[in-house]
Structures are given as structure tokens and as C-alpha cells.
Design a protein around this nucleic acid. Structure first.
Length: 319
DNA sequence: CATCGATGTTGAG
DNA sequence: TCAACCTCGATGG
């Protein structure tokens, strides 16, 4: 799944393109038909992301809560604004933060939505232009949000439900701090959440009640950047190291939200940066690099299962 | 074209 | 602790 950065980007996409006009809400697949009926025709007034969860508030004080889980994705189409993508993903069509040229040969009438299509999941990419408006749903679309100029299709989510404001509050209350929600104040909460647990720090970083938004990639990379042994119990990690971990997570999350990619290796410039953006395998210190030489000391990167997820680390540098 | 694995969570046992 | 959820890119034939 998308880790925290992509969910914040998706929330931003909704804020830009869906807040305002009344929204037709439907469930082409049928599994969300009842929920869709409760939202249909209302306007979206706010879009929020907390950790890996996204919340859309409608004008009658009901919310749509979405968690993408492992395979969930949003497909946006129509007159939407697209953030800068990497060279591999942009296909030469993005200038600044607008897609240009998409309608230059368009037979569409003036005022029709642009035909841009953008898929937002764990990665983002522009897709072939639309041929019709509104586009026919493809596959199992759990929920479709349609305005006069933009459409968003959700497929494969772990969670998709209507919540009251109280239920939204309760959901968020169970989550640990998110740097983009709680700001620097989240640091003390994070430190306390970790220090009171006799559980491996590698496991605590993945626990959404301890800190929200970190997934398997950021977990491995944060631990390497801190040169921290994933198996050290939370209560034994020095407070100052935990503060550095929180600040590094805040930093990496910001980079992820701005670039749309999990760029966890600092100091890359020029061709090295382009290579990291183009290839997932050249992008990380330890994630998915089992047996490869550590980029710092050359020791083969280790991999083991921790609480059902693959953990990657350098057994020499991380102590 | 078939198979595998994945950036995640939930609920059953 | 494990299967289920349900999608798709990567990989191998």
C-alpha cells in the first residue's frame, strides 16, 4: 500500500479538484451502494489525511473514510491538476503543475473536461487519455465520485465506509501522531509511545497506534538512517535517538509528499537522482536489497520476517 | 500466459 | 499466527 505520503497527496488531489461542487456518488461495483446513497448529491467540504487513512467530509456532516490497504488505488480523470512526476512517469506531458497539451487535438467541445487520467496508489502515473465523458468504470469500482469536470474511482480498498463526525474522531484518536497533522507536538507523543513498550523498535514503527503513516519501506529506511538495530526494544532506545527518528520521519514524509516518491537516500544529485527516481531498486539504503552489499560498509543486507512483514537491515551498521 | 509477491489491515482460531 | 481481502507489476516460460 501507499505509505503515508501518498495518502496525503491523494487528499490534496481531492482538495484541489473535488471540494466545492455537488458530487454524484455511486458504487458501480455495488458493494458500497448503501453508503453511496447516503452521500450522493452532497458537496465535499474538506479532505483530510491522517496516517494511511483519508477522510472526505460532505456538507451534511457525514464523512467517507477510505483505507487503501495493500492494493487499493484511486483513478482520477477529467480536468485535474497533476503534480510534477518523475521523468519515467510523466511521459513528457507535465509542465510545472499543469498537464499541458492534453486537449490540443481534442474534438471535445469548449467547456468539456480535459481528458487527463492519473492513477494514484503506491506510485503515480499518467494513463492514456480518456475517450469519453464520463468514462465507463473499469473493473470493480467500489465508489465513484463524479463532478461536472472530474471523476475519481476507488478500487480494491481495505476500508471504505460512511462515518459520522464522532466516528471519524474515534478512528483518528486510535492513531499515533502524524507529522503533517500534529506537527512538532507529535514528537513527545511518539517518544512516549515507544519508550513504554518492550517491543522491538522495528515493530513499533509499523504500529499505527505508535506513529501513523510509516510502512515497510520507510520503516527499514528510517532504521538504517538512524543506524538503529531493528530488534532493540522500544524502552531501550535512547530518547535523543527517538527524537531524531521522529524528525527524520517528518523530513522524509515531507519529501514524499512533495515528490510523490519515497526518496530515502539524501544527497543524490544529477544523474544519481534521476536514476533513483527512475528505478525502484536504486532508490533505497536497505529496502528490498537482501544480499546486496550495504551502501556504507559492503556487508550483505539481511532480511528476516518480523510480525509477518519482511524486515531489511544492515547487520553491521545497525546496532 | 501463468505465477509470484507486495509499500496493509482485519478477523478468525 | 495465519488466511483473506483483491490488484497489478515483475518475473519466468
Amino acid at each position: 500500500m501507499p505509505e503515508g505520503h501518498s495518502v496525503h497527496r491523494i487528499a490534496r488531489q481531492f482538495a484541489r479538484s473535488f471540494v466545492g461542487p455537488p458530487v454524484q456518488v455511486s458504487s458501480p461495483q455495488g458493494r458500497f451502494a448503501q453508503g453511496a446513497a447516503r452521500l450522493d448529491g452532497h458537496a465535499i467540504v474538506e479532505s483530510r489525511a491522517v496516517g494511511k487513512q483519508m477522510f472526505l467530509e460532505f456538507d451534511h456532516h457525514l464523512w467517507l473514510r477510505v483505507h487503501l490497504g495493500m492494493y487499493g488505488a484511486w483513478d482520477f480523470a477529467g480536468d485535474i491538476v497533476v503534480d510534477a512526476l518523475s521523468p519515467a512517469e510523466r511521459g513528457g506531458r507535465v509542465t510545472g503543475d499543469r498537464v499541458v497539451g492534453a486537449n490540443e487535438d481534442s474534438p471535445w467541445s469548449i467547456g468539456a473536461p480535459r481528458r487527463t487520467r492519473l492513477r494514484m496508489a503506491e506510485s503515480e502515473k499518467l494513463q492514456p487519455e480518456l475517450q469519453e465523458w464520463p468514462p465507463a468504470p473499469v473493473g470493480a469500482v467500489r465508489v465513484r465520485l463524479l463532478t461536472p469536470v472530474a471523476v475519481a474511482d476507488l478500487r480494491g480498498p481495505t476500508a471504505c465506509e460512511v462515518q459520522t463526525a464522532e466516528e471519524v474522531d474515534a478512528t483518528i484518536a486510535k492513531l499515533g501522531p502524524d507529522p503533517l497533522v500534529d506537527g512538532p507536538a507529535g514528537e513527545d507523543v511518539f517518544v512516549e509511545n515507544v519508550r513504554k513498550r518492550n517491543v522491538a523498535i522495528g515493530q513499533l514503527l509499523m504500529d499505527q497506534e505508535v506513529v501513523a503513516g510509516i510502512g515497510n519501506v520507510y520503516r527499514a529506511e528510517l532504521l538504517f538512517r538512524a543506524r538503529l538495530d531493528p530488534y532493540r526494544p522500544g524502552k531501550d532506545v535512547p530518547v535523543e535517538l527517538l527524537r531524531e527518528l521522529w524528525r527524520d520521519w517528518s523530513y522524509l514524509l515531507g519529501v514524499g509528499v512533495e515528490t510523490g516518491q519515497m526518496l530515502t537516500m539524501d544527497g543524490l544529485t544529477g544523474e544519481d537522482l534521476d536514476r533513483a527516481k527512475a528505478s525502484r531498486d536504486d532508490r533505497h539504503w536497505v529496502y528490498h536489497r537482501t544480499g546486496e552489499p550495504c551502501r556504507v560498509c559492503g556487508t550483505p543486507i539481511a532480511m528476516a520476517e518480523m510480525a509477518g512483514r519482511n524486515l531489511y537491515w544492515c547487520p553491521k551498521d545497525q546496532t
